[in-house]
């Protein structure tokens, strides 16, 4: 298989460094991975190409990069599945993190965020002599998160980090969930209240847009976004409802539970909080402009037909009766 590998290169040591494209022709076996192609280029053609790689079996997390525009592991991607109609594969460094050289990016931002979530078990009670007793299900569940190899693919493609580097991001939040969901962490009921209190702060769990990029990018099935959603659920269950995000979710359920459909006019009011005057005013310019263009949501919101059935469902499933 004759393939062209088109690589986004960057040499910081030239005057006025700028990234540029370089094409490498390379002959590959049918089963070769993208990493095999890159190693072949490096070993046989051009030793100046810098990249990180090590295990070749998706466990060390070194070779995350953008392959045809999306982050993933070069060692987990078959070259044959990555070529386009012209037998070309487009390789770029991971996003969000600054490029050091070629495909090597600076991971400081990544590790700083991991450190921020105090990523180590913090049990509050007495440590047992033998192992902690815990269900296999709870450990299997955690293992699906600890399967994270810290490759940075999710961070590379995170839509929020792209515009706001202060966001904790998918990897660190999934790491945090690994502890909040651990029955050994936190109090005797396994509730990690202090962690959750930190994570509901701005830049934390509520800043995720639920775009799903991290889920698509993750090579290990960690599903960071689902973990962030689970964190939100944990936070609300722990009584941490005093954030725009929590109010947004609760308001949403309230409105749908009342009228069966969404009333966008009401949502910001409820989410920002009726007493939050500056917050409400911030929505005004848009609202006023929308009114003048005749596209403001009708202020009198009509209920769906037979809304009582939906109300009943919402009431029952939101506040299940005690057995």
């Amino acid at each position: 298989m004759d393939v062209t590998v088109r690589i986004r290169r960057y040499d910081p040591e030239v005057e006025n460094p700028e990234s540029y494209w370089q094409d490498y022709p390379v002959a590959l076996d049918g089963s070769a991975t993208v990493l095999d192609a890159l190693i072949k280029i490096r070993e046989e053609q051009d030793g100046t190409l810098s990249l990180r790689c090590s295990c070749r079996s998706s466990i060390c997390g070194s070779c995350a990069m953008r392959i045809n525009g999306h982050a993933g592991l070069a060692c987990k991607t078959q070259a044959a599945s990555a070529i386009d109609g012209n037998n070309t594969i487009v390789i770029e460094p991971a996003g969000v993190m600054p490029v050091v050289k070629d495909l090597v990016v600076d991971f400081s931002l990544f590790w700083d965020k991991i450190r921020q979530v105090e990523p180590y078990l913090q049990p509050q009670g007495e440590q047992p002599e033998a192992e902690y007793i815990a269900s296999n299900e709870s450990m299997l569940h955690l293992s699906s998160v600890t399967a994270c190899i810290m490759c940075g693919s999710c961070v590379s493609d995170c839509t929020v980090l792209e515009v706001d580097p202060t966001f904790l991001g998918p990897a660190a939040l999934a790491k945090a969930y690994r502890f909040t969901a651990d029955p050994r962490d936190g109090d005797s009921n396994g509730v990690s209240q202090e962690r959750l209190e930190q994570l509901v702060e701005p830049t934390g769990m509520w800043d995720c847009t639920r775009c799903g990029e991290c889920v698509a990018a993750c090579p290990k099935g960690v599903d960071p976004m689902d973990r962030i959603m689970a964190l939100r659920d944990q936070a609300m269950s722990a009584g941490l409802n005093n954030s725009n995000g929590a109010r947004h979710a609760e308001a949403f359920v309230d409105i749908v539970g009342h009228s069966g459909s969404l009333n966008e006019a009401l949502l910001p009011v409820k989410a920002v909080g009726i007493t939050n005057v500056p917050g409400l005013i911030s929505f005004l310019p848009v609202g006023l402009r929308a009114l003048t263009h005749g596209k403001m949501p009708p202020l009198i919101h009509h209920n769906i037909e037979n809304v009582k059935n939906v109300r009943k469902l919402v009431k029952k499933l939101e506040d299940p009766p005690l057995d």
């Binding site: 180590y120 078990l121 192992e131 007793i133 269900s135 296999n136 450990m139 962490d185």
Partner: peptide, 20 residues
């Protein structure tokens, strides 16, 4: 081994919740 478990390793368990 137990030290590692106490540090947080998510070892698979047996039916009694002990290390499998």
């Amino acid at each position: 081994l137990i030290d590692m478990e106490h540090m947080g390793v998510t070892f698979n368990r047996d039916d009694e919740g002990k290390l499998g």
